[in-house]
Amino acid sequence: MTRLALFDLDHTLIPTDSDHEWGRFMIKLGLVDAAQFARDNERFYADYQNGCLDIHAYLRVALAPLTRHARDTLDDWHRQFMAEVITPAIRPEALALVAGHQARGDLCCVITATNAFVTGPIARALGIDNLIAIDLATEGGAPRGRFTGEIAGEPSFREGKITRTQQWLATRGKTLADFEQSFFYSDSRNDIPLLEKVSDPVATNPDDTLRAHAKAHGWRTLELFH
């Protein structure tokens, strides 16, 4: 493999925000105080869009509901979430983009600031085996243990995406410099740090800040969803 293809997830490969939608789904199921959680969910989502999200403050709120339920129960709800919210949103354009890189033998990976519980099944639905996401701590470190509400390791957010990418590549005995080309597709201003590290940054369905940055730096812009 001489090329690397990294993909942000939300509003990049899917035309929605999986973290935000999972919050709305928990409200629908009655797992949280609807009024308070809705206010928090919208406030943090706006902070993310504006590039000023306190990721740790957000995670304290977003992860707390997961601690109250067994993993099997959460998995049942997530299958419902996939069927009702995510699968209908998966677009052929995104599948074709991923398939094109895979057909060329590129090493493909989703890297997202959403947690691995929410995004693992989504990455698999897109046909991507490798995922870098916010890892969730479990009781006793058990693979199927109840979630504690804490995270394990550095969050894959902003500059943290660089660190997590480097760590992941190191497990494969590689660095970014080992690839003939390295692509990163993202919609978000929050991903500019990692976009600046790859050889081929692609501003994909970009927000206004990223669009302007891409134009100023001569980066490719891709409108995947019209």
Rank of each mutant, 00 (worst) to 15 (best):
F7N: 04
R79H: 14
E84C: 08
L53A: 08
K197T: 14
P206K: 02
D178G: 09
A123M: 07
R68L: 15
I90E: 00
L66G: 02
L210Q: 03
N190W: 10
E139I: 15
I122P: 02
T138Q: 10
R24P: 00
L107F: 04
F225I: 13
N130W: 02
G145L: 10
P15R: 07
Y48E: 12
L31Q: 09
A152I: 07
A57R: 09
C52R: 15
A214I: 02
P143G: 11
T171I: 06
P143M: 07
L195A: 05
A123R: 03
A35G: 09
P88N: 11
W77P: 11
H69W: 14
R211G: 00
W168F: 15
I86C: 09
I90F: 02
A96S: 13
A142Y: 01
G153L: 06
A137W: 04
L63M: 11
H217P: 00
Y58P: 03
D129S: 05
H20C: 07
A99Q: 10
A38C: 07
A125F: 12
T87H: 12
F81Q: 03
T2V: 10
F147A: 00
A214Q: 03
A125W: 05
D129Q: 14
Y45N: 12
A57N: 08
T12A: 12
H78S: 10
L131K: 04
A116F: 01
D200T: 14
I162N: 00
I122S: 02
D106I: 10
I14E: 04
E180A: 14
A103P: 03
N190A: 12
F157P: 08
D17C: 12
R124A: 15
K174C: 11
R164L: 06
P92D: 15
F117E: 09
A123H: 03
T171H: 13
P92Q: 14
A96R: 14
H226Y: 13
K215I: 08
Q166F: 00
A99R: 13
A89K: 14
T12D: 05
R164M: 10
D17A: 10
A113E: 01
Y185T: 01
P65G: 05
I134W: 05
D8Y: 02
R220S: 13
Q102L: 02
Q80L: 14
T175C: 04
A57G: 10
D75S: 11
R158G: 00
P121M: 06
R220N: 13
G160I: 08
A125Q: 14
P193S: 01
I86M: 13
E21C: 00
I90N: 08
V198Q: 00
I132Y: 08
A5M: 06
E42V: 11
L97P: 06
W168D: 04
A116R: 14
K28T: 10
T204S: 01
G100P: 01
H78L: 12
H11A: 04
N130M: 01
G105W: 10
C108T: 15
L131Q: 06
D17I: 10
D8T: 12
T171L: 09
S188R: 09
W168Q: 03
T221L: 11
